[in-house]
Write a protein that binds this DNA or RNA. Structure first.
Lengths: 233, 233
DNA sequence: GTTTTTGATTGATATATGTCAATTTTGCAT
DNA sequence: ATGCAAAATTGACATATATCAATCAAAAAC
């Protein structure tokens, strides 16, 4: 394990990497978080949180990128979303059973703060605005899963793959050209198909000039066409 | 429209039909609910709440049965769950955008209380135990959607249909014999397949003696076999 | 009671998708 | 650089699934 505790723990006070959610905390509350957090660095490929384990902490991703996925049937995975810096990871376990219901794995070297769950809940109880914003965040995540459910079950493979690529564009990189941090396997898990099918669809997209894949880089060449494929399913 | 206001509005106080969630309210809070609710009866087939509309109220289903579904792509639906009496319907819209993100339709004659959303939120803010229980409920719903996402994308049709039937058994009727309130279309929407495919799978199940379908009644004859089909996907 | 409409059923067919096995490429460690 | 292991690719094939068109049954409307 190459996880290690940060040698020089910064204070949460004024930390630019803390999820924006925490901007609603008072100085006192932030100090409480500070005193009950652990800051850990992960290398690409390492598991940050494992589905099924006890939820002792909630997470704030300070830097890096990670995939958040449900471990499904017989070694198959469903990626719910890609986690980008300055975002909070909680999940339905916070209030249901204090367990993690997904696994989070670093895609590139990432830095994460682990905040004590009990302290977090305590602050939620005491700070109304914070609680509302937290719930809004959580609800947005839930809606994203609704959308995922619909498009994964009601579109065919090209539409699903187009959605996956456009998701990376719209939500994660905000530019049509981005590093290929997701393997074909990951893209398959993101669009609910087999690896081989993912490869074939991507090849088709490339042949038709919709995308370009060079070493470690993906470029969405014809965004409009991809959006059309997404629309017609 | 055959919806009509109840002639003799009962008080929420002591109402046996109100979702158990509300048992955590004080007398005062319950009176507040009482003063800001409307009680409406629906006939089978009627729409109780329509996706996309403004969420002015949250719902408590007092009696009857309803299907709760997302309207997806080009007239296709994804049933998230069947709503049985004494259950609460809110959804991610409460904290996200005050909109309904699913449609609820009565499967049989049903009676529903509409509780003013602002009042509901006010009570949530003031009653910690109630808020926690509400969040636990909501989280359970979210987990059910996670499960649904996995089984709908990672199992094939027989497994999905077996899951749908076992869901009706386990969660809704709690007995292997139950009225066929869901059309084949509904069962298809519940297991993410076409009507025709649903018909065929059900015919196969019947041929193999796993289920029995007589007029308006469904019986799960060989539960173990269905569970096995569910398991192997 | 008859007509009309809706839902259920069926089989034939086309398409989508997964699986398998073989091959190539790539990344990594020596 | 060299070799090894993992990932990506490919095409052939089998299977799963949707679609279509036609028929049948049942419920609702007249």
């Amino acid at each position: 394990m190459s996880e290690y505790f940060e040698k020089t723990p910064r204070s949460c006070q004024g930390c630019q990497s803390l999820s924006s959610l925490f901007s609603l905390l008072s100085k006192k509350e932030l100090q409480l978080v500070d005193a009950n957090k652990v800051h850990v660095n992960f290398k690409a490929g390492e598991t940050i949180k494992k589905q099924g384990t006890f939820m002792s902490h909630v997470l704030s991703v300070n830097s890096g990128l990670a995939k958040l996925y449900i471990e499904g049937i017989e070694g198959r995975f469903a990626i719910l979303r890609i986690v980008k810096p300055t975002s909070f990871i909680g999940g339905p376990g916070i209030y249901f059973d204090q367990r993690h219901h997904f696994t989070v794995t670093a895609l590139i070297d990432s830095s994460v703060c682990f905040i004590d769950l009990q302290i977090f809940k305590e602050i939620l109880r005491g700070n109304q605005a914070f609680a509302e914003e937290f719930l809004k965040d959580f609800s947005r995540d839930v809606l994203a899963v609704y959308n995922r459910l619909i498009y994964l079950t009601q579109k065919q493979m090209p539409g699903r793959m187009a959605d996956a690529l456009l998701y990376l564009f719209d939500e994660i990189f905000q530019q049509p050209r981005f590093p290929m941090i997701l393997s074909r396997f990951d893209l398959a898990d993101l669009s609910a198909m087999s690896r081989e099918s993912a490869v074939k669809i991507l090849r088709d997209f490339q042949k038709e000039g919709l995308i370009r894949i060079s070493d470690h880089e993906m470029e969405l060449v014809d965004e409009d066409a991809l959006r059309k494929i997404s629309r017609i399913g």
